[in-house]
Amino acid sequence: MSWELGLWLLALCALLALVVQLLRFLRADGDLTLMWAEWQGRRPEWELTDMVVWVTGASSGIGEELAYQLSTLGVSLVLSARRAQELERVKRRCLENGNLKEKDILVLPLDLADRSSHEAATKVVLQEFGKIDILVNNAGRSQRSLCVDTSLDVFKELIELNYLGTVSLTMCVLPHMIERKQGKIVTVNSLLGIISAPLSSGYSASKHALRGFFNCLRAELATCPGIVVSNICPGPVQSNIVKNSLTEEVQKTVGIDTVQSHKMVTSRCVRLMLISMANDLKEVWISDHPFLLITYLWQYMPTWAWWLTNKLGKKRIENFKNGLDADISYFKTWKTKHD
């Protein structure tokens, strides 16, 4: 075979690989590293059994679904949130649907904003189970209001809860993991911790802060390779996060249900989260398009990303002012074509 033919075959293979990757990306609901881990990586059913997993924000949404899926893997669960009654409901369903017994689930009410309670809560978990293998920092609140209309107290509340509360609990658990030289710290961030979008200035700021903190923490823990720090960045997911979002005042929330059929199903998001935990991925992006595409543009083509964000942002604000879910229009259009 001549060298010219060899070069042509090499170029053809490279083009074919590029086309395959493009087709995979168009159908993807997570970044390509995560999609590869789902296809060829380690299974949660192999890697996460017999672990003690502490989930904050476990009374609803992603945290609740995470508790249900973890309960089928044979882990010991610690369920935390402010609403004890809702945690008991989640516990009952875990016992009904999972492989766990009463002794395997600890309901531990916790207010993430009450940082003075975090050390005592950590001691309770260690006394109950003797170790903490995985801390899932999931608790937090979102925001739906224009920056110019928003009270400074709202920004303070979001930083206190989403950022400082998460950092505080992590700092209480971290010495235990360092002593054992192993553990996983998994933080449910957001694509808005990478990109920015109108109506979420305070929320986005708190999530950007979290990403910066945990990226730095990961670098500092390079001498403890047994401790994995993971940022999970979902896009829009079916939950009550928008309904419970703060608006222009701390005492005021969105408070209404919106159509969510255009958003990712919570169970799919959580399954991808478990895959990322099993494969020790440092950061994953979980979303349908167009948000996944926009995130890649923000990462690699920021000028184009700004142009597209400004275009979509106008529609987002218009939807919000009309009482609709901020993302419904362009997501609904894309999802119809995607399906």
Rank of each mutant, 00 (worst) to 15 (best):
K207M: 10
G255W: 05
T170L: 09
I256H: 04
L169H: 13
R180F: 00
L210T: 00
G193N: 00
N244W: 05
L169R: 15
Q260P: 05
E157H: 14
L174A: 05
H176N: 14
A209D: 08
V250G: 02
L164E: 14
K263R: 06
V173F: 11
F213G: 06
Q251I: 07
V250T: 07
P236C: 02
V186Q: 08
C269G: 10
H262A: 07
N189L: 07
H176S: 10
E248N: 09
R218I: 06
K156D: 08
E249H: 10
M264D: 01
S168W: 08
S261C: 10
G235Q: 04
C224R: 13
M171G: 03
G183W: 07
A209T: 09
C216A: 13
V188N: 14
N240Q: 13
T166V: 12
K207G: 01
S245K: 04
L164Q: 12
S168E: 07
P234I: 04
P236E: 02
S261M: 05
P198M: 12
R180D: 12
S230L: 09
N240C: 13
S206D: 06
T170R: 07
G202E: 01
V186L: 09
I159H: 10
P236Y: 01
C224W: 13
T150G: 03
G235F: 01
L169P: 04
N231Q: 15
S151F: 08
S200I: 00
T166W: 04
F155P: 07
Y203M: 05
S190H: 09
N215F: 12
M264N: 04
T150N: 00
I178L: 15
L210K: 08
S200T: 06
K252E: 11
Y163W: 15
E157W: 04
L158N: 06
R180H: 12
L158K: 03
G202M: 03
P175V: 06
I195F: 00
F213Q: 09
G202Q: 03
T223W: 01
D257L: 11
Q251H: 15
V270R: 13
L169M: 11
G202Y: 01
G255V: 12
V270G: 08
G255M: 07
Q251R: 15
S201K: 00
M273V: 12
K263V: 01
L246C: 02
A205W: 07
K156I: 05
C233T: 05
V237Q: 04
E160G: 06
G202W: 00
I241H: 03
N215P: 03
V259Q: 11
Q238E: 14
Y203G: 04
I227Y: 05
T150E: 00
S201Q: 04
G212K: 02
K243C: 07
I256P: 01
K181F: 01
L221S: 02
A197C: 04
I275W: 06
S261V: 10
S206R: 13
K243Y: 15
V188F: 08
V254I: 13
L210I: 09
I185Q: 10
M264Q: 13
S206P: 07
L152T: 14
F214P: 02
G202S: 11
S206K: 14
K243P: 00
V250R: 14
D153S: 15
S201F: 00
V242D: 06
G226F: 12
V250D: 03
C269T: 14
A205Q: 15
T170Q: 11
S196V: 07
V154N: 03
L217D: 05
V229G: 01
A209S: 14
S200Y: 03
T187Y: 13
